[in-house]
Amino acid sequence: MGEGRAKDEISPVADRVLRVLLPIAMLALGVALWELVVRVGGIPPYVLPSPWLVFSTLVSDRALLSASLLVTLTTTLQGFLLAAVGGVGLAVLFNQSRLIEYSLYPYAVILQVTPIVAIAPLLLIYLPQQAAVLACAWIVAFFPVLANTTLGLNSVDHNLVDLFRLYGATRRQVLFDLKLPAAQPYILGGLKIAGGLSLIGAVVAEIAAGSAGAGSGLAYRIVESGYRLNIPRMFAALLLLSLAGILIFFALSVLSHLMLRRWHESAIVREV
């Protein structure tokens, strides 16, 4: 934030306005250029729809698309919550028992490194469709929470650990009053990654499930519209997916800021 100001010598207010206005201007420019290319070149909509057509499709198909958006968002949110609870829970369990950590950690890594696109079709065979989609979102999203929380729980100031020992703290007190609060910034960092990943997991699973039938999420709409050469609707669904991702990231950033703003360096705005 500060660097730009130092470079270009502009006032803080102007800086803030520019931070909002410049990306919007770039967007408007890009969209206008796109519209112009489509119109001047006479490109048919099944090759490249104009932004205006995408927008009007968004409006005309709103009932269908918003229902699909709701399905995808629900899956994403459920997957995310499971990932948050599962990731933090497993990390705490690993932290409390080395034996459990040794037994399970390698499998957590294996789940993470095996590409989800390859796991999804298998899950769809063994699980009901909705459960399979949820499982995909969870598998992709839980690992960053687990890894970050583990790092956070192990990053506690050693002197504070000594202090807790000196005052005879119980394991429970060490966990809840020391380790978990100290791990907060790491956990929130993990959640931020998990938010985006759970959307990816949901989309991958919906696409894998697409041919299997009963899906109705946004990703399924994209596949379906592709088969029907309904390119404007593909774009409209893609736009919604992208907006959903932005919304998730923004919500998690706000949460992180609210929880850390009083004490953590990452959330402090320094006055120069």
Binding site: L160, Y167, D177, A182, R262
Partner: peptide, 24 residues
């Protein structure tokens, strides 16, 4: 015990830090 560093919990207020031994 007073350590070389202040060793305060950064996420807690000064009052909460001082209260810690009593809480534990």
């Amino acid at each position: 015990f007073v350590f070389q560093e202040p060793t305060l919990m950064p996420w807690a207020t000064v009052a909460a830090n001082v209260r810690l031994p009593l809480k534990l």
